[in-house]
Design a binder for these strands. Structure first.
Lengths: 180, 180
DNA sequence: CCCTTTTCACCTAGGTGGTAAGAT
DNA sequence: ATCTTACCACCTAGGTGAAAAGGG
């Protein structure tokens, strides 16, 4: 499924006339597997708001990368507006052949953003190191799940993802009019 | 609206490692404007199956071009499968600002297909002429209309365009089973 | 009369969380 | 008990010709 909210960046400082590839990958934050504990009251099940360490991380195949579908493009094009990775999809299927990013459920991940300068020189492979720059935003870390473990996350997504509009109690557009 | 059926080409003979831009444009077939004649019976209106010349063509602004959205891409990528221009859209709105191809209704057009080799040399502008090749398939000529003038064209489109499935009398998939 | 514009029901295509059943 | 899978109703987004209304 798609990652939501979408990873978005505003880019400055590129050479407007040069070509760049933009891509993302995901690295494990730690070597742990997590789990949730549910409290059972007489009538409802609640999930605790924090994660417990459940043991050592599951083995992972080498991480895939996701190229932004507009790659390659000129610096001017990338800088013109916010770059959105909304086509990026995550899966827990180790045998996936759709090119989606494979993550282990109940593990913590750090999204990474990479910029590759497309070097026009013939022996560009030699300069791979210097034509490559990685950006990490720690606030984008998350725990991968197959089902939401926290009701407030569910509500946040229902409220903000247009495709989940069918689960909203009331239309946010009407809120100022119908409520006070 | 989209052009349907879609213009599609199978490409051979490119340099697999070189970059190419693929694009289309439309040129008038002649300097004429056409019209239809309807026969009126007691109960129905019929259109004749041929076009009458109705005068000299309307003035036209310089034709726009449509770049295949995958451009630029490597020769290997273009040759791998049939290239389909299904995103190309036509309009009769002279003030269109969606980048669609502008055509005059009731005029005849010849689609053209162009291949541009992206020359890596610094002074590539000098070689523009030789890096450019145009292909014309006369069987793709058509008359632009705002409403279909021929019932068989309508039926052909309803039968073959998935988006018009709602107007089909019976599902072509079921045909061998439900009919004989 | 002939053609164009606008709106509409009906599709394709695909992204949501809910839910129930399944797995360990 | 905890997590995963498969399917579903309900959305977004947008491509169809029909039909009615409009224009010259």
């Amino acid at each position: 499924r798609r990652m939501f909210p979408t990873f978005q960046v505003k880019i400055f400082g590129m050479d407007p006339m040069a070509d760049y590839m933009l891509l993302m990958d995901f690295v494990p934050v730690d070597d742990k597997r997590y789990r949730q504990v549910a409290f059972l009251s007489r009538r409802y099940a609640f999930h605790s708001s924090s994660w417990l360490v459940a043991g050592k991380a599951d083995p992972a195949t080498p991480g895939r990368v996701h190229y932004h579908p507009d790659s390659p493009a000129k610096g001017a094009q990338w800088m013109k507006q916010i770059v959105s990775f909304d086509k990026l999809k995550l899966t827990n299927n180790l045998l996936d052949d759709n090119g989606h990013i494979i993550l282990n459920s109940m593990h913590r991940y750090q999204p990474r953003f990479h910029v590759v300068y497309v070097d026009p020189r013939k022996d560009s492979e030699k300069y791979a190191e210097e034509n490559f720059k990685t950006f990490v935003f720690e606030e984008t870390r998350f725990t991968a799940v197959t089902a939401y473990q926290n009701h407030r996350i569910t509500q946040l997504k229902i409220a903000s993802n247009p495709f989940a509009k069918g689960f909203r109690d009331c239309d946010p557009e009407d809120w100022p009019r119908n409520h006070r």
